[in-house]
Computed example of a mutant assay.
Amino acid sequence: MRGHPLAVPASPSLGPVRGLLAEADAVLVLGSEMGPTDLDMDLDGGFPDLAGLVRVDRDAQRLASGPAGLGILADAAEAAAALAARLPLRQGGEGATRAARTREAARAALLPGPARCLAVLETIREALPEAVVMGDSTEPVYAGNLFFEAGQPGGWANSATGFGTLGWALPAAIGAALADPARPVIALAGDGGLQFTLSELGTLADEQAPVILLVWNNAGYREIEMAMRAAGAEPLGVRPTPPDFVAVARAWGIAAERITALADLPGRLQAAARRGGPTLIDLPAALVHEG
């Protein structure tokens, strides 16, 4: 639940969150496979050992993998409800204070780039708090996986961990919109990733699905380029020329525009949601990083 005083909507890849986990007497994990990229996105090997680990999952094979601990084979929601019914309601304590301290420290631990991207995600959330955001493998989604709290449960899903799946956001968003057309759906995709499934604009037009396609446009595979430079390699093949996404969308009869001022984003999102049907918004990343 957004805003809960005990919530810490941050990745265990961040040092402050790891510190909170390391000092816990017991850790209850509900429905997570606890894969390497769930716990350690940077793969730096710094994730702490967990004392008193209890894992609940309905998949026996998944329970058998990952960190060792007490495994309970059960549906996570049912197990949580049963545990809540048996545990006494605790009054007072320092939980809210510790959670607030960890939230603040985790946000402060973000590098400037992810911090700017997080501000964009929060702008989206404040503009359309009821929206579902389906994210591709792109810079603001990486930032959101480090620190972001969706407007409501089920409001944030993406394919940007593990091996990632470039192009996932648009078809996933179409499915989400068709399943619940009353709820705004945002597909957040980079210009490079979107080109993997650009033809799905045709499906979007045919179905008239109420999807807002927000294109994070930095004219290339920026994350891969930075990784190559960090490894001492000369970047190669990371600057594919993107098409004019606005023109392509309009060719399918989809409402489309390019943002020229970041301050315009909330109003454009709200207008798209009111209009219904599909919309493409091209957001130049330079507006966020360079002002």
Rank of each mutant, 00 (worst) to 15 (best):
A80C: 05
A80W: 00
A81L: 10
A81Q: 13
A82M: 02
L83K: 00
L83F: 00
A84F: 02
A84G: 11
A84R: 02
A85Q: 01
R86F: 03
R86V: 03
R86P: 02
L87S: 00
P88V: 01
L89R: 14
R90T: 06
Q91K: 11
G92N: 04
G92R: 02
G92Y: 01
G93M: 02
E94G: 10
E94P: 03
E94Y: 06
E94S: 15
G95C: 03
T97W: 11
A99Q: 05
A100D: 11
R101D: 15
R101Y: 11
T102I: 07
R103Y: 06
R103V: 10
E104Y: 08
E104L: 14
E104R: 14
R107F: 13
A108K: 11
A108P: 13
A109I: 09
L110D: 11
P112R: 07
P112K: 06
P112T: 07
G113M: 14
G113D: 13
P114Q: 05
R116H: 08
R116A: 15
R116V: 08
C117H: 10
C117L: 15
A119D: 14
A119G: 10
V120F: 03
L121M: 02
E122T: 04
E122W: 03
T123Y: 03
T123D: 12
T123S: 15
T123N: 06
I124T: 07
I124H: 08
I124N: 06
I124Y: 05
R125A: 13
R125D: 13
E126A: 15
E126V: 10
L128Y: 07
P129L: 05
P129S: 06
P129N: 07
P129W: 02
E130M: 09
E130G: 12
E130S: 15
A131F: 05
A131N: 08
V132L: 15
V132D: 07
V133Y: 08
M134S: 13
G135C: 08
D136L: 08
S137M: 14
S137A: 15
